[in-house]
Simulated scan of single mutants.
Amino acid sequence: MAPKPKPKAKPRIVVIGGGTGLSVMLRGLKEKPLDITAIVTVADDGGSSGILRQELQIPPPGDIRNVLSALADVEPLLEEMLNYRFHNGAGLAGHSLGNLMLAAMTDISGDFVSGIRELSRVLAVRGRVLPAADQAIVLKALMSDGTYVTGESSITKANKRIKRIAIEPPDVEPLEDAVVALQEADAILVGPGSLYTSILPNLLVPRLAQTIEQSDAIKLYVCNVMTQPGETDGYSVGDHLAAVRDHIGHHLFDYVIVNNSEIPPEIQQRYAEQGAKPVKLDLDDVRRDGYKVIADRLVYFHTYLRHDAERLSHHIHQLVEDWMLRKR
């Protein structure tokens, strides 16, 4: 009797970022036959995350909790409970239950990384979730007027144009599991998310960008659909890529995935009232800079503009599959 053929190994994809955009995309990617590792920023210092970071001396749990929730294989009610935010109660108001659970699991297991791993097991997370470093990072921004602003939550509130971002301590050690995941990846995906406060803080952790550069994986960048007030005002797709290149010192990506659908005027007006506009697609300039571009209708509107997770994950999976075929 002939032995059964071994099942084909899933392509290993490492996704880097933080914030809502990353979580939305991961909800689509987890439905694809991919081995997912998410490397998540630890620079948040506002709200519930900032309080827990300061009082318990742990990395901020908020972005990690969002990613765990997105990758969890649980009933919708449990996911809603994880994201539930208390509105009343001395000491409880403002905290999300998932943040408190992650803080508790950190205390029970002895460290933040073990806490994430144990909570991932409880939630049946499809993939691995890793912080970029096992300690909190402080962001410091040099503004175009020469002033400095310290703290992730203060940078966008400063309402000034960001010239450069840095992390403190600058020599923070990356999580070794994150470095190994990048070394073993078949595909590396950065974004979507806040350029200066979610994406670049990960890439500025020593050795992470260098490891990406040295990898022979396919490297993808998912650009935001809208500009972010106080962070990327007036930015085009090319401006996002230029900011990464200026901070890292070289090109990092093979492909850029962008939205090319028109956003209805009434939705644009709603966002304009908050200071946000559609990110301009300067297609010719981006291609001239050496990037391959995947452009499609990648958004839908339900209260807020969001990436279409199903359509976006289809493009990503197809690119990864084609890349794997060419490597064989």
Rank of each mutant, 00 (worst) to 15 (best):
L175C: 07
G28E: 05
R270V: 10
I316F: 01
R121N: 11
G89S: 09
I248P: 11
M1V: 15
V237A: 11
A93M: 04
V42N: 12
P33K: 15
L119W: 06
Y304T: 03
P7T: 14
G21V: 04
D45I: 09
P265Y: 07
I39E: 09
N259C: 02
H317K: 11
I155M: 00
N99T: 04
L29S: 03
V67F: 12
D216T: 11
I51N: 10
A242Y: 12
T211L: 07
W323N: 15
A132D: 03
A158G: 01
R164N: 04
G127V: 04
D296Y: 02
S69A: 15
P60V: 00
L26I: 07
G89L: 04
Y196C: 00
E31I: 10
S96Q: 03
K6P: 08
T227G: 08
P3Y: 15
S153Q: 07
L102R: 03
Y304D: 06
D296S: 13
P229H: 08
I36K: 02
P206V: 07
Q274N: 08
S120F: 03
V222L: 12
P192K: 05
L305Y: 00
L82N: 02
E80V: 00
E213W: 14
M81G: 01
P61G: 09
G146M: 06
A90Y: 11
G146H: 05
D246I: 06
I167P: 00
V286S: 12
Q210M: 08
P201T: 09
L305H: 01
V244N: 11
D186R: 12
P131E: 11
L142Q: 13
V205Q: 12
V129Y: 01
V205D: 11
V42W: 13
Y300C: 00
R245M: 13
N202D: 09
L175T: 10
D216Y: 08
S236L: 06
L189D: 11
V293C: 08
V258W: 01
D282K: 10
N88F: 08
P169T: 00
D63H: 13
V237L: 06
I16E: 00
S313I: 04
G89P: 05
